[in-house]
Amino acid sequence: MYLLTDEIAFPPIEETSPEGILAFGGDLKPERLLLAYKNGIFPWYSHDEPIIWWSPDPRMILFPEDLKVSKSMKQLLRRETFKVTYNTAFERVIQACAIIQRPGQDDTWITTEMEEAYIQLHKMGYATSVEVWRDEKLVGGVYGIDLGHVFCGESMFSLESNASKYGFIHLVEKLKTTGCQLIDCQMHTNHLASLGAYEVPREVFLSYL
């Protein structure tokens, strides 16, 4: 397995393990993170582990035009059940994503180091947040890396039923108008599959990227 040095570089994708691990170590400097995302690589690790860099095969993706919106979600959208904003509370969104309890997950992969790194990317204009509000309360959100033609989704949270899905749908509809051609969902979840995302071979994803 490849151990990164201070050099801002990654090994060839072909060296990725069957589990999807490409390398260990390095740091979360903005330059390294942006290089990673531009090459289909992302960090994912727990607080007691070194930084682990992934490029899974297959890869979960969503073309904006393939977004599926259920009848019940369409009703919520028509009623404007929630208010949606962008980039008004990035730090609160990433912190909420870090602490929310998820089924089958005992620990968070969004470490303090990760929070600080993505907040820095947000200040640089690369990391985007979507906030979902009920009155004045933040009840859901999504954040990710915006490469222009590709949006790399990182995490979402929901304190009310359908809040994160509501925000994600708003995000996809907005991305349709900005020239975004693909949403990188990284790994399969039933939640994302219900919205129209599906898996493709890594080489196909990289050709899109």
Rank of each mutant, 00 (worst) to 15 (best):
F90K: 01
G20M: 00
T128M: 10
K174V: 07
F151M: 05
P103D: 13
E31F: 02
K83L: 12
V69Q: 06
Y45S: 13
C152N: 08
K68I: 12
C185P: 01
E65K: 15
G148K: 08
Y86A: 09
M156F: 05
Y198L: 01
L121R: 07
I99H: 05
Y45N: 10
T88P: 00
R92S: 15
T112M: 01
K174W: 12
L22F: 02
N39M: 02
K68L: 06
W54Q: 13
I110Q: 09
L28V: 12
L3N: 10
S161E: 12
V84M: 04
F205R: 05
F24K: 08
H122Q: 11
E113T: 12
P43R: 01
I100W: 02
E199C: 07
R92P: 00
Y143V: 14
V172C: 05
E49A: 06
F42S: 11
S72C: 03
W109L: 11
E131H: 07
S129Y: 03
L147K: 02
I145R: 01
T112Q: 12
Q181F: 01
K38L: 11
V150C: 12
V172I: 15
Y198Q: 03
P11K: 05
F151K: 06
D48Q: 08
D48V: 09
E15N: 12
A36I: 03
Y143Q: 07
R59N: 09
R32T: 12
M124H: 04
W53A: 14
P12T: 10
I119E: 11
S161Y: 13
K74T: 07
T5Y: 05
T85A: 12
I169M: 05
